[in-house]
Write a protein that binds this DNA or RNA. Structure first.
Lengths: 226, 226
DNA sequence: CCGCATCCATGACTAAAGTCAAAACCGACG
DNA sequence: CGTCGGTTTTGACTTTAGTCATGGATGCGG
C-alpha cells in the first residue's frame, strides 16, 4: 500500500530528486485515486481541496460555457501535476477536470501539502517553477487565442506535436473534437482548417495520422500574427 | 538611499508583514528604477533577468502580434509585482512590459531573489500564492476570450471596475484603446459594444465615465457563455 | 455480419468581428 | 480663440468562424 504510493510518487516529475524523507512524508499524505475514462474529477467552482498528479492515463482540464462549448486549458499525462492553483488560495477550482482515459492519480490534501512545502524549500522552488511554466504556457495560449486565426493556431499545435514526437509522421494524441476544443474552436472549423493546410500542401491527413510535408511553411504560418 | 528602497518595499503587497530582516535583505538586492510614460521595460523574448514591483505609476504587460495588434495580459498598479515567470526558469520574458504613466519601480535580479526565497519559506508561500492568483486570472481570461463575445467580456470588465471602485458611476482607468486591447479586440469593436450596452439600457457613457444603470443585466450578460 | 453510436466531413447560411476610410471630438498649447 | 495631434466614433465592406443539417465512415457489441 505505502509501497504503491512510493512507486507512484516516483513517476511524478515534480518530485524527482527529492530526498527519501520528503518522499515518505508525501506518501503519508497522498491518496491513490483511480478514475475511468469520462469520470469527472472536479468541476470549476467547487472548493479546491486537493492537488493532483497523474501516475498513468490522461486528464483534461477545461472550462465550459453554459452553451456547452468548452475550452481545454491543458491535457495532462503521466508524471504531470495539476490543480496547483487552489492549493495556495484555498478557494475554488478555476476549471474542471475529467479523465480522458482510465487513469491512476495521486491526490494531496491542500493543507497537508502546504505543510510539506513549508518545510522543504527545494520542493517549494520546484512548485514555483511548475507554476511559472504553467503561467508561461497560459500567456502563450492567450496570445494565440486573441492574436491568431484557427489555421495559425493549428499550425502551431502541429509543430508542438512534431517536436514532442520527433518525427514528421504524427499521430494525433487526442480525438479531433478535443483538439478543436484545445484550439478554442469547434470540430467543423478544425476540419476546415485541416483541409486548408492540406490544400496548401503543408500536411497530409489520414484518420488520426498527420504527415508534415512542409515544416517551414507551417512555422511561417504559425508565426503570422493577425 | 537605502531608506528609499525600504519605504518603496513597504508599498508592495507581496512583502507585507515580512520581518525587518527579510526586508533589509530585499532592500540590499533591490534596484530603484524610474520609467517615463511610454518607456518599454522589457520585451517578450528577451532574457528574463529581473523581477519587478510597481511602487507608483502604472505598467501594462502585453503580447504583440507582428501585425501590430496587441493583447494586454494585465495592467499593474502601485503595490503589485510582475514578471515573476522568468525568476524560476531563467528563460525569456514571455511578454512585454511598458509604463503607461511615469512610474517608479523596484527590480530584483533573479538569482539573488531566489536566494532570499530559499531562506524564507513564508515569503516563498507568498510568492506561490501570487503565482496561483495569476494563474487563476489567466484561466479566466482564456475562458473569456474563447467562450464569450466582446459585449459579454466588456460587461465582465465593467463589473470588475464597479467592484473595485465601489460605485455605479465608473471612471475608466485606461484609454479605450487600451481597454480594447485588454478585452482582446480593437477600438472600433469596443466602441460598438459600448453602444450596444447603451442601447440595451445597461449603461450610459460620457467620455471616460460610465454609469452602470443595470448591474444585474450586466451580470446576466457577462455570465452568458457562447 | 449487422446495426448502432460516435466521430468526422461537407454544404449552405448567419452572425460576429476585423479592415479601411473618414469624420467628429477633445485637450493642450501657442 | 484656433489649430494640431491624438483618440474615438461611424459607416460600408470583407473575412472569419459558428450554426444547423446531413451524410459518410469507422468501430464495437450483439
Amino acid at each position: 500500500m505505502e509501497k504503491d504510493k512510493l512507486s507512484a510518487l516516483a513517476v511524478i516529475k515534480l518530485f524527482e530528486g527529492l530526498p527519501k524523507a520528503q518522499l515518505t512524508s508525501l506518501a503519508d499524505i497522498a491518496l491513490l485515486k483511480r478514475a475511468k475514462a469520462g469520470d469527472t474529477l472536479f468541476e470549476a467552482g467547487q472548493p479546491g481541496t486537493h492537488f493532483y498528479a497523474v501516475v498513468s492515463g490522461k486528464v483534461r482540464v477545461y472550462r465550459a460555457a453554459p452553451s456547452g462549448k468548452e475550452q481545454i486549458l491543458h491535457v495532462f499525462g503521466a508524471g504531470e501535476a495539476f490543480a496547483e492553483v487552489p492549493v495556495f488560495e484555498g478557494k475554488t477550482y478555476p476549471a474542471s477536470a475529467q479523465a480522458l482515459e482510465d487513469s491512476l492519480m495521486l491526490s494531496f490534501p491542500r493543507k497537508e501539502f502546504v505543510e510539506v512545502l513549508r518545510r522543504d524549500p527545494e520542493l517549494a522552488l520546484g512548485v514555483m517553477a511548475l507554476l511559472s511554466a504553467r503561467l508561461r504556457a497560459f500567456v502563450g495560449q492567450i496570445a494565440q487565442l486573441s492574436l491568431k486565426e484557427v489555421p495559425e493556431r493549428l499550425a502551431g499545435y502541429l509543430l508542438l506535436l512534431r517536436a514532442s514526437q520527433n518525427r514528421d509522421d504524427l499521430t494525433l494524441d487526442l480525438p479531433k473534437g478535443q483538439i478543436a476544443s484545445y484550439l478554442g474552436t469547434i470540430p467543423e472549423t478544425l476540419s476546415r482548417a485541416l483541409k486548408k493546410l492540406t490544400d496548401q500542401g503543408l500536411i497530409e491527413i489520414s484518420g488520426n495520422r498527420v504527415a508534415v510535408l512542409d515544416p517551414e511553411g507551417l512555422a511561417k504560418l504559425a508565426e503570422a500574427g493577425r
